[in-house]
Write a protein that binds this DNA or RNA. Structure first.
Lengths: 146, 146
DNA sequence: ATAAAACCTCACGTTAACTTGAGGTAAAGC
DNA sequence: GCTTTACCTCAAGTTAACGTGAGGTTTTAT
């Protein structure tokens, strides 16, 4: 009963993502389905959780690729349980911690940095940060969408 | 002397960005230049500061579009001074504050959220955050690049 | 004076995470 | 039984922020 076969439309409605997104996720190996007689996708109920985890992770800024990697470390056949998800939670939480730390340092540097005239390519602590952000590469971190 | 004409190659070397990036920024209206006899770009020295500010802002996760908007509010003809840059600094710092606040709430929600089994589309505080992140839209915030 | 380095424009390529559309099949409602 | 939804595949389009390469000109160095 719990593994009832859900249609793609139902899953889309329940999770708030588009059908095309589900196709896309499947193609990327993030979710799985089987087909019914008429070649239509059917899902196990745990796909809902899976998708919500994907969405949660995306909110944390984790890429689909990275999510996929993480999922690979999870039980492939067995439906993942609380403990499995909790591990992901912990991992991503640590990443958040680092992110917060970096941004805080950045904010504190910013205080007076541009204003004080130090903003040159050579020695500005913002342009040349010495903390975690460096390791993360020059990736964008969206703050606003004006 | 201070407004000496700098070549695109020099500016590229000094700022660490590629020549094509400077072309791109100019096309986007982020920087300006004039041409010499042979149709080659020349820059005022303050383009260096401008580019470092762009790069700093990008580290903060601000999009070029948003940077452009912000630049529009700056003195167009007069070379911007410390005070002008300091205003930008303040503005972006406030955005950082909000970002940090959001991430902190997110991290705290995450603590136990997935593990406790509440992660459903309807009531998970991560999937349905009630704070600033909501306003920011469903934008990615890159954490890692595995 | 000539070769090498720097510069120019313009068009197309790149990545992520999707969305849209065309052309056709299956399932559901009445 | 017929029509409307729902679903299928596959190709191509979208956005941001550039990078790449071709084909040609200008500057600089020797």
């Amino acid at each position: 009963m719990e593994d009832a076969n859900l249609s793609v439309g139902y899953v889309a409605k329940r999770t708030g993502v588009k059908v095309s997104t589900l196709h896309f996720y499947e193609q990327k190996g993030l979710i799985r389905s089987w087909r019914n007689q008429g070649n239509q996708r059917r899902y196990k109920r745990d796909v809902l959780r899976r998708i919500s985890v994907i969405k949660a992770a995306q909110r944390l800024g984790i890429s689909l690729l990275s999510i996929h990697q993480t999922f690979l470390g999870m039980p492939n056949e067995r439906t993942p349980d609380k403990k499995d998800w909790a591990q992901l939670s912990k991992r991503w939480q640590q990443q958040l911690d680092r992110q917060i730390h970096s941004l805080t340092k950045l904010r504190d540097s910013l205080d007076g940095c541009i204003g004080c005239g130090c903003l040159s390519m050579q020695n500005c602590p913002i342009y040349n940060p010495d903390d975690v952000l460096e390791e993360q590469g020059p990736g964008p971190v969206i703050l606003d969408r004006e």
